[in-house]
Design a protein around this nucleic acid. Structure first.
Lengths: 341, 341
DNA sequence: AAAAAAAATACAATCGATTGTAATTTGAAA
DNA sequence: TTTCAAATTACAATCGATTGTATTTTTTTT
C-alpha cells in the first residue's frame, strides 16, 4: 500500500513535481487552472503530504517536546491539556515523555528530543535534577526552552512560567492565622525543588509578619504522597504539641492527614484547620472539603506553550530576553479552614 | 549554530559519509579502527543523528500516535502512562492529541498522524464518533491501529484492548444485591459508547439473574460528571421510590450523588449503598469511601501499546488476525456498600 | 611472489518535498 | 507582426542519512 507522492501526481498530469509542490502550497507562481488540476488529482489519489520529507527540507519539525515527571499526576495532566490546546491551535504536535522523577531518564529524553529535532522543549524537571547540563546543552544548540512549574535555579537565563508559590503559601498561612490558628505546622516537599523552598519561605514569612515564631520541628518534609501526610500527622499528634493548623504544600498530603485525624476522632477544622495547595479534585471531595490554593495548571501549560512558540518564531532575531511569567494563585476557601474564633 | 552531520565527520576524517553512517550503526562492514575514530570525532563535534532524515529514508518514524478524549481525565492519564512506559522501553516516541469528545478534531488528528507517518495509532474514540470512516482509512493505508477502552462497533475487524465492562457491571450489581439492596438505580453514560451499553447490560442481567425486575425509570443517562450524579440523585429522591442502592457507571457521578445525600441527611450505605466504576482516586477519599470496580488503566495502556508494536513489527507478514484483549476488572470493596442485612 | 579470497572503503542513488534559477509560454504594447 | 515584460512551468540541487554495487586494500593461500 505505497503512499502517493508529488511525483505520482506530477507524472499523471504530465507536469513537474516542483509545480505540484507549489500548487499544493498555494504558491502565486502556479496558475489557478493547474492548482485545480493538482488538487483534484491529489484527492483522487488520496495524497497525504509526507511531513518527514517536508520537515527535513525545512529544518522544522513543527513538534514540541514536553517532559513532565509523571503524566498521571493531576496537575501535570492539566498542564499538558493546556499545552496541547495551545500547540494544536498553532499547528504544532506534542511529544510527551515522563521522567518519572529520574535524572537519567530525563537526559535520555532530552537527547531523543534533540535527535528528533523538536522545535522547542517544555520541561518541568524531576526531583533528582540539580545540575542541568543537559538543559544547558539545549540552550547552546539554540533550541528554545521553557520551564514550567519546576525550574532549574542552576540556569538563570531562561524562560519560565511559574506559580507564585511564595505568595500562595503566604496567603494560605495568613488565612489560617486569621482564622485563629496559633500553632501551624507545614508539610513541605523535596527541598531540591525551588517551588517547595518558596512555599516554605511564604509560610515562614507569614508567621513572622504575624509575630509567630517559626519552629523547624513543625516542618515535615516528604514526597507529599497521601500516606506521607497520614504518617506526618500521626507523628505530630504523638508529640502532642498543640498544633491547631496545617499548611500542606500539596493537597494529597493534607487529605492523608485529615484521614488520620478522622481515625483518632479529631475534628477538622475545629481542632485542626487545614489548607492545601493545587486545587486537586480530591480537595473538593474530601470531608470536610479542603481549602486550597488554585494553581491554574491549564493556564500555566497554555502560557508556557505560547511563550515557547513565540520563542521559536523569534529565534535568532534578537539576543533573546528571558521572561519569567508568574501566575498568581488564588485561595479557594472551603470548610477545612472555617474555624470559629 | 548548525548541527553536525555525518558529512562533517567524514570530511574531517578524510573518509566517506557512507562509512561514517555504517560506523555509527556498528555495521560489520567497518573496521574497528575506523569505528573508534568516527565515534571519537562524533563526540568531539557534538554529533546528534538527524532522525528526520533517517526516518525519511527508512520509512519509519518510530512514533506512535495516541488519541484520547481528554488527557486530564484520570483514567486516560493513567492509560497514557502505561502507553508511554511500553513505548519508551521499545524505543518509540508518543505523540498525544485530545479529541475533546469532538469528531471533527478526531478526524484532523488522524490526518495529521498520517502526514507525520506515525508507525501506528492508539485510540479511544470520542462520544461523537459513530461512523468511523477516518479510522477505516487508516486500515486501508495498512497502518496498525489499536483501540483501547472505547472502540468502534462499526469496525469489527480490529485490535482492541477493553475492560470487561459487562462482567464488572454484573459483579458490581450483584454485590449490591448480596448486600441486601432491593431497588437499585443505575447511572449510565452516553449510549453511543459500547462500554456504557455493556455496563448497562451487566446491571440488567445481574438484576434478572436475581429475580429483580429491571425498571427503565431507575436508569439515568448522562455524561456522568459529578454534578450530573448530584442532579440525578436529587431527581431520584424527589420521586421517593424507595431506592436503596446505586450502581454508577463511573466514580465521579457516584461521588456527586453521595454529596447530595449528605446534604439531605441520608446515610450511605445504610439508606442507600453505592458502587462506582474505575477506581478513580476520588473513590478512596470520598466519605464514605466508595466501593468501585478497578479498571487497571495503566495495564490497559501498556497492553494496547504492546499489541500495537507487535502489529507494527509483523506488518505485512501475514494477513493480520485481529485480537481483542479483555482485562477483567476487580471489585474493590469499600465502605459505601457495607450495608447491614 | 603471484593469485585468490576476504575485508574495508568509496561511489552513487534514494527517501519526498522544497526552492533558486533557467526556460518557455502568454499576453500586452508598439 | 514583432518585441518585451509578466506569468508559468521545468530543471536541478538540496535537506541528512541509508544501502546496493563497485572498487580498493589487506590478508590468506599456493
Amino acid at each position: 500500500m505505497k503512499k502517493t507522492t508529488i511525483y505520482e501526481i506530477a507524472k499523471s498530469l504530465g507536469i513537474d513535481s516542483s509545480t505540484v509542490s507549489r500548487a499544493l502550497n498555494d504558491s502565486p507562481r502556479v496558475s489557478k487552472k493547474t492548482k485545480v488540476k493538482v488538487l483534484d488529482k491529489a484527492k483522487e489519489l488520496g495524497y497525504s503530504a509526507n511531513l518527514l520529507a517536508s520537515n527535513l527540507r525545512n529544518k522544522k519539525s513543527n513538534t514540541i517536546g514536553v517532559v513532565v515527571p509523571r503524566i498521571s499526576r493531576y496537575f501535570f495532566s492539566t498542564t499538558i491539556a493546556g499545552i496541547e490546546e495551545a500547540a494544536f491551535s498553532h499547528g504544532y504536535n506534542v511529544i510527551i515523555s515522563q521522567s518519572l522523577e529520574q535524572l537519567e531518564r530525563e537526559k535520555k529524553i532530552i537527547d531523543n528530543f534533540v535527535s528528533n529535532r523538536v522545535d522547542g522543549v517544555l520541561i518541568s524537571i524531576s526531583w533528582e535534577t540539580q545540575e542541568c547540563d543537559h538543559l544547558k546543552k539545549l540552550q547552546n544548540l539554540n533550541m528554545p526552552l521553557v520551564f514550567f512549574d519546576r525550574h532549574c535555579s542552576d540556569i538563570p537565563n531562561s524562560n519560565k512560567v511559574l506559580t507564585g508559590d511564595f505568595q500562595g503559601a503566604y496567603q494560605a498561612t495568613e488565612h489560617l492565622i486569621k482564622k485563629g490558628c496559633k500553632k501551624i505546622a507545614h508539610f513541605s516537599g523535596p527541598q531540591t525543588l525551588e517551588l517547595y523552598k518558596n512555599r516554605l519561605k511564604g509560610y515562614k514569612l507569614a508567621l513572622e509578619d504575624n509575630n509567630m515564631k517559626f519552629d523547624p520541628i513543625l516542618v515535615h518534609e516528604s514526597s507529599l504522597l497521601k500516606n506521607f501526610g497520614y504518617d506526618s500527622m500521626k507523628i505530630l499528634m504523638k508529640n502532642n504539641n498543640g498544633i491547631d493548623g496545617v499548611f500542606s504544600a500539596n493537597d494529597a498530603a493534607a487529605v492523608g492527614a485529615i484521614k488520620f485525624l478522622t481515625t483518632i476522632g479529631k475534628k477538622v477544622p475545629e481542632d485542626i484547620a487545614f489548607v492545601g495547595f493545587s486545587n486537586d479534585p480530591l480537595s473538593e471531595v474530601v470531608e470536610p472539603s479542603l481549602t486550597t490554593v488554585d494553581q491554574f495548571g491549564f493556564e500555566m501549560g497554555k502560557k508556557a506553550c505560547e511563550l515557547l512558540i513565540e520563542n521559536i518564531n523569534s529565534k535568532n532575531l534578537k539576543p533573546q530576553e528571558f521572561k519569567t511569567i508568574e501566575l498568581q494563585p488564588t485561595l479557594i476557601e472551603r470548610l477545612s479552614s472555617q474555624k470559629q474564633r
